[in-house]
Amino acid sequence: MSSITYLEAIRLAQEKALADDPRVFLYGQDVGNFGGAFKASKNLAKEFPGRVFDAPLSEDAIIGMAVGAAIEGMRPIVEMQFADFSTCGFNQIVNHAATLYYRTGVPCPIVVRLPSGGTSGGGPFHSQSMEALYAHYPGLVVMTPATVEDAYSMLLEAVALDDPVIFCEHKFLYYHLKAEELPETALPVGKARLARAGRDATIVTHGAMLHEAIAAANELATDGYELEIVDLRTVKPLDMDIVLASVARTGRLLCVSEEWPWGGVAAEVIARVTSEGFGLLDVAPQRLNAKDTPVPYHPDLWSVHRPTASAIAEASRRLLNI
């Protein structure tokens, strides 16, 4: 098998979900014959006639219709084209899909795909990371796959779940992250993964930042420092066991997240480590987020707006008092 990109893994997962489960259908803007703005549903409309179709430019209706279809026993996968536009469907996500099970006892098995995060030139409205926003609401599972393997297996798990899933697939990883083959098995939903073993400090991260963190760790390794890296995989539920176990080993914590700092995933992880594992910390935990401005358009501004490998390396050095 030739190399499979992160994007192709998402397409293949959707193809498998459609093939395996007659309850699955795809709905969203341009997902039909066109195959999606990023081609995540390329050829699927032809392969599965009547089950992959275009929606009007109506995010509220797309999510609302998915909720209704889920109540009737279907397993809709809806695409928001860009995560940023999911705010137009926000009400249906947080007030309808997320509350349904608690209110009525009827689960709401929808998957909302959010092409997320920044790419060069994306600008303020095609770059956002929305995972913390959705994780704030009870009732939603929020997935943030960082690898090709996870993009595939977690999307299949998302479809199988009875609860609504916000699937934050990272656009920066779409084309240049590749794998030779797709996994047959996967970690359970809600389990984080130790992406790199180390002893000197723990970096907790997710999504595209995993790869920046790995690059930073490789840089510090040349100086003899070993950073341990936790890839959260899902930010809700949050796997605190692996985080606390790692902090117990290293005593130092840096949380790296592409989203904005205020109330973000990094802030939540630090809050939980501080309240649940204060005694494990040798120094104050730190975080590194995007700058607290809209995501800038120009590549030169964007490249320093989000955390980069060099910024993570620098923050790690400060944490290690190097």
Partner: peptide, 16 residues
Amino acid sequence: AMVPAVAGALLARRLK
């Protein structure tokens, strides 16, 4: 909010 929900339910029935 219930307008698209009912529409989606009807879509599901059609798909079934």
